[in-house]
Design a protein around this nucleic acid. Structure first.
Lengths: 225, 225
DNA sequence: AAGTGCTTTTAGCAAGTGCTTAAATTCCCC
DNA sequence: GGGGAATTTAAGCACTTGCTAAAAGCACTT
């Protein structure tokens, strides 16, 4: 089972890409080794020769995505300049850019997360660096604990972005525009930007209010003493 | 296939509840008619006697949820008083309350939506009244089109609420608190309230800015003429 | 030509799937 | 208690699944 399964191996790559394409159509349970082999144009047994098991194959597929994901965010982070608000927008853009370029990815992750705890650990493992990345980026902006902690903001922003991709196909019958089209995508991106602004502005306003309250309390104490 | 499958039929109800419990563990593909029958303590063939097919069974399970969901929101709407902000909070609370009381539901919907387009139409069908409900509730607050239209706000709020339930199990390794526990749930609710406030406040602030711009523009036109 | 190590193919097992059919059972009205 | 309908059961069909073992093909060195 120690076969080279990276891009240097042509057969393994063909299998990976076939699995990637098929996964989004039916989740992991809708995926059969035979279908993958047929799509890749190789023999069924080769799937197991290269990846050991179906689970192993799927794990490699999502590993590949997360590698690209982390790389994309890292290179975006390096290029970030300007004030905090601009940097927040750049972060969100990098995130949305990746999802737009890999529309299958958020659906795949959601599908795997939904198909029982078999993949929870794996996804959590890959999610961790991204989570830490956001945590670091929000240092000084968000409090350490409570309803505005980085963890909550992370869940919200990632939920807002990724849930778009799972909800869009359901909205087809409700919307005039095609929710999967580029116009709707641009509109969604503008909405997310607006939302980030709304959160940022309230965060700042709350902090101002709190410090004013502090000042008033300090004043009252001084007057009282 | 015209058997009574509502609450009056004990056997059908047992099957429904068994399916409901099992669905969350493995999605629709992880669900087998035999497992349902065993869990319900009935014969395997009865599943098909009452529900025709596995697909039919699952459809009834989610129908039941959506019936309760709509009922819960309707009774909450009736009891809503106060200003707009208070009503928005009440809406969100009713929504979160339902999800907290039926934690399997958001995961089930996500699981089905993720397992291919077979259920897209059905979910979209049940989602429609809720979507219209939000659209109506946001009348006068949100513009008709663009990035702040009710449709975008709907996707965002429902995404923020439901994605919590799919992400919580993944956060277990990253958090100090148990994300599935009641404390984290309360914190999440507070976060969603805060988020709704942030959106509401920015919506109001944007409207003020826009009308001031309008006034300035009108003034300029008058002076120019 | 024989041997070597990797890759691919063939063929199939064992288990599980959705679903059907026909017989057995229970229920209820007369 | 008889008879017809509704319900429940046992048994199995036809098919797909993940996965494996053994053989075959291949390029390569010696």
């Amino acid at each position: 089972m120690n076969r080279p399964t990276d891009e240097r191996n042509e057969t393994a790559t063909k299998i990976l890409e076939a699995a990637d394409e098929l996964l989004v159509e039916g989740g992991i349970d809708g995926l059969s080794s035979r279908a993958v082999a047929t799509r890749a144009g190789v023999n069924n047994a080769l799937v197991f020769y290269y990846f050991g098991s179906k689970q192993g194959l799927v794990e490699r597929v999502i590993e590949r995505y997360y590698q690209r994901h982390v790389a994309a965010l890292e290179s975006a982070t390096d290029a970030m300049t300007g004030d905090l608000r601009a940097r927040l927008h750049a972060m969100v853009d990098a995130y949305v850019d990746f999802m737009e370029a890999h529309r299958r990815f958020p659906r795949l992750v959601q599908s795997l997360a939904a198909s029982g705890p078999a993949f929870h650990e794996l996804i959590g493992h890959h999610m961790a660096p991204l989570y830490r990345w956001v945590e670091r980026a929000l240092e000084g902006v968000a409090p350490k604990t409570g309803p505005l902690a980085a963890g909550q903001l992370y869940v919200t922003v990632s939920g807002v972005v990724t849930s778009w991709y799972s909800q869009a196909p359901l909205l087809a019958a409700l919307w005039d525009k095609d929710p999967e089209g580029p116009e709707a995508g641009a509109e969604r991106r503008a909405h997310v930007h607006w939302l980030v602004d709304a959160m940022y502005e309230k965060l700042v306003a709350d902090a101002r209010t709190a410090s004013r309250d502090d000042a008033r309390r300090t004043l009252a104490e001084r007057e009282g003493g």
